[in-house]
Amino acid sequence: MEKMKRSRCSSVRARLAVLWLACAGVVSAQQSLETTFRITGDTVLAVFSPQAEVIQKCSAVFYDGRDEIAYGVVISEDGYVLTKASEIEGIEDLSVRVDKESYKDVVVISVDARWDVALVKVDGERLEPAVFAESSDLAQGTWVVVNGATSRTKRRVLAGVISANAREIPADGGVVLGVELGNDKDKLVIKAVTEGGGAETAGMQAEDILKAVDGVEVKDLEGLVEALEGKKEGDKVSISLIRKKESLELEVELSARGELFAEADRNDQMSGDFSKRRSGFPRVIQHDILANSQTMGGPVINLEGHLVGMNIARANRAETFAIPVEELRELSERMLRESKN
């Protein structure tokens, strides 16, 4: 298990928690359950071998060079795969493994920014795509199975339960362009562009003067807030600028304020490796299976082996979100349709 890419997850320490641990009683070896019988242990997971066979075929593994960076869901026999877009963004040496086969030619067909999902194509033949379940409407406490770790030849599963109600995860702190604004009177001057934000990607620069959002004139901060009201993370807005006395139009993707600016809080420090993009999803189901940012994008299946969701964010130490199968079906059909137009 340790070899299979769990290390990053466990390396971050919560200082306070460790301090308290030191106060815990001495535990003798006899009173410790052997690893194999724990919920992540081989003996317990052996009972999930029918589900593991399904995961082996329909869970793709994305690599940056030799490093695993994400999982994916195989959705067609000829090699269409869905994955978490923000985990593969900007990776040049991208390759994908399905079952035992490695695919070096990987084409990112399209990205849905709102769901943070990328449609990817590899040169597969006769792959065994995930079988979509009718519904993700599973009662709290229902077993689900995911791809938890991997080697070159084998996908390893982890199991857990649906742990909370399905719901929307609004953008953490609301949506922003990713800029710092000056205090100038009657005009919105960009003071700085935040690293990693939509404004930077779109090419906004310091000293630019913001004139309009989606054609609506904005003069001050209130006007900007109003213009962004009701927008979701991943939505694109058209920004009109004046740069060195010339007009300019840029398309800027909105980010969640909390993901762009916030400092890690105590729970984040305790959580270890969590997903960069973990808010702003129209609807998710939640499960309790151990994960990290590199195990997102993969299938979540029920005991029948049918796809009930796709892991989309490791929110923290105790909570993982997945796109429900209803929305995923619609999303994949739309992305496939658009790719063929």
Partner: peptide, 24 residues
């Protein structure tokens, strides 16, 4: 709502029990 986690009881001591269901 409240978040549920399934687990096994993996260690026992006088004043502490340990499980493998992740808390935060």
């Amino acid at each position: 709502g409240a978040v549920v986690r399934i687990a096994r009881l993996v260690r026992m001591a006088n004043n502490t029990i340990q499980t493998d269901g992740t808390l935060i």
